[in-house]
């Protein structure tokens, strides 16, 4: 076994800092976000860059020893909860001022709000590290607009012939007429024949203007008759 060397070295003590240092006390107040010590887990309360720190003990209290006179930023290091930071001004051995401090803002001028000492801090939130998974859902899938359109389209393909069979012959004729026009229009569009297109667009209006209202029933009749005969043929 190694011969233990008994070596004494007295650290160069910063007497000034020691004599003026004081203990900072505080407490975590349990709330809904963090109801007890078990939920909080191991946590540390640190001043500035963590040179001075104190652990949060089971009853929620903490104390930081050796705090020197000056302005400090107090933060709570808890793994799963976040806390607000505080500005601590140690003015002398007995006077300690506690103020709220928002991270990312200048430290000066200090906030006008003074908080009570001993310090009380509470958890502001619990970290949520995960995004919820997207699960497969048949109803959700069927409910999506894309699927609805597809299903509707399918239904139309299958159902349209029967629908047309049972439709009023007049309405059917009108529909066919319109469809024919539409296809014409489309043809004109694709071929780039804009004159034809404008003619087509104008056509219905012209019809309405030129032809007297009495003529329409007759055409309707003729069409209806045709429709009926068609029907007859099919059967």
């Amino acid at each position: 076994m190694a011969r233990p060397t008994v070596l004494f070295l007295l650290c160069s003590s910063l007497l000034f800092a020691v004599t003026c240092a004081l203990e900072l006390n505080g407490k975590i107040s349990w709330n809904d976000v963090c109801p007890d010590y078990k939920q909080l887990g191991r946590a540390r309360v640190v001043l500035d860059d963590g040179d001075l720190s104190g652990s949060v003990v089971k009853d929620g209290s903490f104390s930081i020893s050796n705090v020197s006179v000056g302005t400090h930023v107090l933060s709570v290091l808890a793994h799963d909860h976040w806390f607000d930071q505080l500005r601590i001004d140690v003015i002398d051995k007995t006077t300690i001022e506690v103020r709220p401090y928002v991270v990312g803002t200048p430290l000066n001028p200090p906030s006008q709000v003074l908080l009570a000492y001993p310090i009380t801090v509470e958890a502001k939130g619990k970290y949520n590290y995960f995004v919820p998974p997207e699960s497969f859902n048949l109803m959700g899938m069927l409910g999506s607009p894309m699927m609805l359109i597809m299903i509707l389209g399918g239904a139309m393909v299958l159902g349209l012939p029967y629908l047309m069979k049972n439709m009023d012959p007049e309405a059917l004729a009108e529909l066919k007429d319109q469809q024919a026009k539409m296809s014409q229009m489309q043809n004109a569009m694709t071929s780039g024949d804009f004159r034809g297109l404008s003619a087509l667009m104008a056509a219905p209006e012209d019809n309405r203007q030129n032809q007297p209202a009495t003529q329409s029933p007759s055409t309707g009749k003729a069409q209806g008759g045709k429709g009926r005969s068609n029907k007859h043929k099919k059967h």
Partner: peptide, 21 residues
């Protein structure tokens, strides 16, 4: 459980004895 029951600083670390072991 590993819960910290108490924590107490008995003297400032600066005046601590740096002993070996």
């Amino acid at each position: 459980t590993g819960d910290i029951l108490s924590e107490k600083q008995l003297h400032p670390p600066q005046v601590g004895l740096l002993a070996e072991p």
